[in-house]
């Protein structure tokens, strides 16, 4: 059922549960994977990618925004206590992932999900580090190194999780089996 604001009940609930996963991953620190460089790799952006793929760019953007707000309010690192770095880049994760998925859908589910996970993760890494450089938290050289050493493992993890979750979910959740009134 479509409500006036343009968000269906489905859109509301799926945004909420996936945003809850992002908050949960951050609050329990399960979403941070410590790496030898001392900076944590993150998988907290994966719910935004999955939301974008399942329900489109609006849902993806909402999940990303809630994830951004959460990471701003509860951040314990200086860079993410800056609202421009914590919130703005996260809005685009789900949007770009949703567009990539929609564009590549005809070339097969696996290809489209993989590409969307890569684009979504790269959006997060590039925009966060880019804004970090712009706001003078990081020198460009350092940002580039961090981008390569963390961006690539993050992409690999995001692709694996997105594929495992979405392929499994889509197999059970055929369109005709979805809850709809």
């Amino acid at each position: 059922m479509q409500s006036q604001g343009g968000l269906s009940t489905r859109g509301i609930v799926i945004s909420a549960v996936l945003a809850a996963i992002a908050i949960f991953l951050g609050a329990t620190r399960l979403g941070f994977i410590p790496t030898p460089t001392g900076i944590n790799a993150t998988i907290m952006h994966v719910p935004a990618i999955i939301g974008g793929i399942l329900e489109g760019s609006v849902v993806g953007a909402i999940i990303g925004t809630i994830f951004g707000l959460y990471s701003f309010f509860y951040a314990t690192t200086p860079m993410f206590k800056d609202p421009i770095i914590a919130i703005v880049p996260r809005i685009f994760i789900g949007i770009f992932a949703a567009w990539t998925y929609a564009g590549l859908r005809r070339s097969g589910e696996v290809t489209a999900i993989t590409a969307a996970a890569i684009v979504g993760t790269a959006t997060n890494t590039v925009l966060v580090l880019g804004f970090g450089v712009m706001r003078h938290y990081l020198p460009a050289k350092v940002a580039l190194t961090v981008g390569v050493t963390h961006g690539i493992p993050e992409i690999v993890v995001a692709v694996i999780i997105s594929l495992a979750v979405l392929l499994g979910w889509k197999r059970v959740q055929r369109p005709e089996a979805r809850a709809r009134v």
């Binding site: 509301i12 609930v13 945004s15 909420a16 549960v17 945003a19 809850a20 908050i23 809630i66």
Partner: peptide, 10 residues
């Protein structure tokens, strides 16, 4: 409502 449900789900 999304924020409410999300916080409730954590």
């Amino acid at each position: 409502l999304i924020v409410t449900i999300a916080i409730r789900f954590v």
